[in-house]
Amino acid sequence: MTRSASRLTPAQREEIVALAASGEGIEQIGQCFGITRQAVRGLLRRRGCRQGGSVS
């Protein structure tokens, strides 16, 4: 069962952004946190991150 991205703590969300910025793949990040890659992409998009995690 996957966890909803809305159930992540603020610290987990920040960690996801940092992992993406360091080049970690969104599928691997999602597996690590028990969420889908679509949830990871949505979180990054809402945080203003471009592909690869850089903040715009």
Rank of each mutant, 00 (worst) to 15 (best):
S6H: 07
S6N: 07
R7P: 03
R7Q: 12
L8F: 08
T9D: 04
T9W: 02
T9L: 10
T9E: 03
P10L: 06
P10W: 04
A11R: 08
Q12C: 03
Q12H: 07
Q12E: 12
Q12N: 05
R13G: 11
R13E: 12
R13M: 10
R13H: 06
E14A: 15
E14Y: 13
E15H: 09
V17R: 01
L19K: 06
L19I: 05
L19V: 01
A21F: 01
A21T: 00
E24Y: 13
E24V: 14
G25M: 11
I26E: 08
I26L: 09
I26Q: 09
E27I: 13
E27Y: 12
E27P: 09
Q28A: 13
Q28L: 08
Q28Y: 04
Q28D: 12
G30C: 00
C32G: 11
F33P: 00
F33Y: 10
G34Q: 04
G34M: 02
G34S: 05
I35W: 04
T36Q: 00
R37W: 14
Q38C: 09
Q38S: 12
A39V: 04
A39L: 02
A39P: 05
V40Y: 07
V40L: 03
V40P: 03
R41A: 15
G42L: 09
G42T: 10
L43D: 08
L44H: 03
L44V: 05
R45T: 13
R47E: 14
R47N: 13
C49V: 06
R50G: 13
G52C: 01
G52V: 02
G53C: 08
G53L: 04
G53Y: 04
V55F: 06
V55K: 09
S56T: 15
S56P: 15
